[in-house]
Computed example of a mutant assay.
Amino acid sequence: MNRLFNLVNQQDNRQLLMNTIRNGRVANAYLFHGPEGSGQEGFALEYAAMLNCQSRENQPCGQCPSCHKMKTLEHGNIHLVFPIRTGSLEKNDPPFKNFGPDDMEEIQNCIRKKAENPYEKLCPFDGKHIPINFIREIRRKIYLTAPEPGYKVVIVFDADLMMEPAANAFLKILEEPPDKTLLILTTSNIDAILPTIRSRCQRLHFPALSTTDLGNHLRENGIREDRINLVMRLSGGDVRQAIQLKEADLGRLREMTLEALRMIAIWKIDKVYDLVNRFVTLRKENPDEFDRLMLSISFWFRDAAILKAGKPESDLVHADMQIEIRKFVDYYTELDAFGAYSAVDNCIDLISRNVYINLALVNMFFKIHNRIQPGKSQ
């Protein structure tokens, strides 16, 4: 079975989409939804390729002119809508009126990255909204004659980020779609989509990937075997995040985790407050890395509890730090690993609820230190 884009499983959904083409039952509009990284955006692109493939079998064939254009997202029938930086625009202004040549080049770079990796987010300049001008521009284009044979396909990425006027404008397109035009909305937050839009779309849910599927995909992308469990946990099943966790990132995470544990165990007050300040700075400058560090410390104590209980080593998340964790458990003979694990998880929860981060971290470090209880003198 051919695939134009490198997508992970979701075989049931793929078969369903293929059947709509074979049976001539393509709907006017679809709403692809599911957790981040489950593949709804990539399958929207794949479906567009299937519909416009010039082969009568094995769509997309990957060989015809249409497939070659789809592979680089340069097909004239495909219209992509995505969050952008918004500014002051008049009613009839194009959405990119305030973008200079460098800005437009950056957008093209983002589209190229999306073509290479369908799990990549298409969100140049960290755009927060889809403005009404973007929808008006698309509406103008799709009511024109298609530049190429086949279906005109509009794909709205992160459709939940349509501003209310944009959503209402899109609703008008849904109510009177042009012939041979397919509208696909993708979202990881279906509840944020207007009910009137949801009711006019055929919904297709993309569940989170299984650990087996994600693990196999990571192996194919060169992730070390002893780090696959960690990458899967840190990414939360999101393929995009998993692939972004390169070896260098994991090596740095390993060192940061070990250093934090050393400073907590020794407990020199000036060092502890220095550690708090470093954690706070990290959260301001790189919140994703901060989240990964907190999870890494949590997983460390989870793994320590597993080894302390004599459970299989294959269950470890930090498989690449098995030797260090074993030494830690053997040295701190009265370690309350589960208590330390709970302290970290509680701190993560408090920070997510905007509790004063410095206080939450000091409290977490103190609780961890008290649960380490060394069996030997330092």
Rank of each mutant, 00 (worst) to 15 (best):
L4V: 04
L4K: 07
N9Y: 13
Q11H: 10
L16D: 07
L16Y: 15
I21E: 10
V26W: 13
N28H: 15
L45T: 01
A49K: 03
L51V: 05
R56I: 11
N58W: 12
G62P: 03
H75I: 00
L80K: 03
L80S: 04
F82R: 02
I84C: 01
R85Y: 10
K91R: 13
P94W: 14
G100M: 08
E120Y: 15
H129L: 13
N133R: 01
I135Q: 01
R139G: 13
R140W: 05
A146E: 07
P147R: 09
D158N: 12
P165D: 13
A166P: 04
L171G: 10
E176M: 07
P177Y: 11
L183Q: 10
L185T: 02
S188C: 08
D191G: 09
I193T: 01
L204T: 04
L204M: 14
P207I: 03
L209Y: 06
L209I: 01
N216V: 01
H217P: 00
N221T: 05
R224F: 11
I228Y: 03
G236L: 10
D238Y: 06
R240P: 01
R240G: 06
R240S: 11
Q241W: 11
I243L: 15
A265W: 12
W267I: 06
K268E: 14
N277A: 14
V280A: 11
L282G: 00
K284I: 02
E285A: 03
R292M: 13
S296R: 09
A305P: 03
L307N: 07
K308D: 09
P312H: 10
V317T: 12
D320G: 03
F328T: 02
V329S: 09
Y332N: 15
F338M: 14
G339A: 09
A340D: 04
N346H: 13
L350E: 14
S352E: 15
Y356W: 10
I357C: 00
I357L: 10
M364R: 05
I368N: 07
